[in-house]
Amino acid sequence: MTVNNHDPLISALRTLSCHPPRSVVDLVFSNWIIISGPVGELYVAFTDHGVNFVRTAESVHRDDAEFLREYRERFGRPLRKATRPPAGLVPALRGRPSRALQLDLRGLTALERDTLEATRRIPAGQTRPYGWLAREIGRPRAVRAVGTALRRNPVPVLIPCHRVTTSTGELGNYVFGADMKKRLLRAEQVNLDEVHELAKNNVYYLGSETTGIVCFPTCSSARRITHQHRRGFRTIDQAIRAGYRPCKQCRPAAAEPA
């Protein structure tokens, strides 16, 4: 056997040591940033796959350490402060949902992911009941599971779980408290007073006598119905029996069991 120093095989083996193609620091570390949101500042964390955690500054008492602790507890990933927000975040927070904005929802169950993806499709300024969401994901009986999935939503505001309310027109729970839910909805011009007023009169659906279409009260079509042509319904079945067709945009038929 030759001496190591002059052994061509051993010298050749040494050349097999190589750097990974991308920095592993970038793959392993999450980044965090404070950014101004629709109602106050937000802490946002993101990985190389997209945004995976959002907290209001209020909810972490404006304490960086508390946010970081909560993040590590939940994800077990190291963090470093980012110098720039991820692509698409700024437009999304200004109410312009952007395709560039990637969300990292790894680690969630299929039901959680389905729920959040359906929630993401609720337009700004509108609300939907929990039961509607359960129907939208093809699990009409899983209303409670849907509620749990929303409570665990890692990226509130960006996935607008604040737009999901109870079927009786109450706001329902929110990860950052009912008051924040109200503020977020008001910031999107949801007329909560009107929704509340209708609910007091047991009205959860609005039909238009001119078009014969029935909607959720916050649907953009419902908001265009003039007062004298507006008809309220307690259930979607009542509306259908009265000859109304469920709106194809807000799909209110999904709110009731078939």
């Binding site: 040591s17 190589c18 750097h19 990974p20 920095s23 592993v24 620091v25 570390f29």
Partner: peptide, 10 residues
């Protein structure tokens, strides 16, 4: 990570 990524990756 910076100091050991090469060893682990190799």
């Amino acid at each position: 990570v910076r100091s050991e990524q090469r060893v682990v990756y190799s």
